[in-house]
Nucleic acid binder design. Structure first.
Lengths: 145, 145
DNA sequence: TTATTTCCATATTAAATGAGTATAGATAAT
DNA sequence: ATTATCTATACTCATTTAATATGGAAATAA
């Protein structure tokens, strides 16, 4: 039940672009070294972000990438939906027709509610929120233990 | 970012056992046909549930399986933790040492919070809650769209 | 006591997915 | 023109998931 590296990398790329927002176009090599992401993989992820309208870029020497809009309008929920193949905890949540038992399934609505509460949270956290946090993580107890 | 079939099947197995709680030991073949789960796969999942102390069973003719305790004490969070290999949205949430950047990562605490809110929800839904719902699912809008 | 019904355990396989690499091309500044 | 940069697609490799196969162990009842 984990997020893909594309989602994680995608988020870190956006953070990097937000941090360097006043530096003009940021090059792939710059992001790659700062965030320790393989260049070619990074390029793929950037392309997805660009096609989604979140990032814009200019080609040629001195070219690079930058956020298309203000980071306070980019939310984690949007990034997760963009990169995760299946965005629900269980497929039947958004495609009940995939399961012949879904009509009177006793669990489906629970998976639905859990998915909803998760995205409610993710849709409340923007890239701007992240770069304005102090980045000091307490390494304390984990919610799943 | 989806739950495994083991988690989904495991939940449905427990629902089935809860529904038939007054019928004595329930046989694998019974659960398999009712819930449309391959017999041998079902046996694996049942074994995990048994080792976790959630299910008990008796061998030999007239044997079968039953809940070890009342279904109002079995929560979805427990089932998910039991079957999912990685129970956090991102590995660094519970194992920050796995990522050299985690100490001053600007995203980690967000993944932590999202994981926490998800399990808070899952830990509030019991098997008893599920079997006492009416099972009529509205097939309405999905939280991820 | 022995046949039979049931659960128990491990090994194997097959398909899907995820993560990353390779190769080739297009654009624009100098 | 040359070169630095982004763009696009195809391919490979490793891991995980889902399921199957095979063989066993326990307990009941004829």
């Amino acid at each position: 039940m984990k997020l893909s590296t594309k989602t994680r990398y995608g988020t870190r790329i956006l953070i990097e672009l937000a941090l360097q927002a006043d530096q003009g176009p940021i090059q792939v090599s710059n992001i790659a070294s700062k965030q320790k992401i393989p260049v070619k993989y990074l390029e793929q992820i950037l392309r997805t972000l660009k096609q989604a309208g979140i990032v814009k870029s200019v080609r040629g020497p001195k070219g690079g990438h930058m956020l298309a809009n203000n980071p306070d309008g980019i939310y984690l929920g949007q990034i997760v939906r963009l990169f995760e193949g299946q965005t629900d905890l269980v497929a039947c949540v958004s495609s009940p027709e995939q399961c012949e038992m879904s009509a009177d399934c006793l669990v489906r609505s629970a998976w639905y509610d859990a998915t909803a509460v998760l995205y409610e949270k993710l849709d409340g956290i923007s890239i701007a929120d992240l770069i304005h946090s102090d980045g000091k993580n307490n390494l304390a107890a984990c919610p799943t233990l």
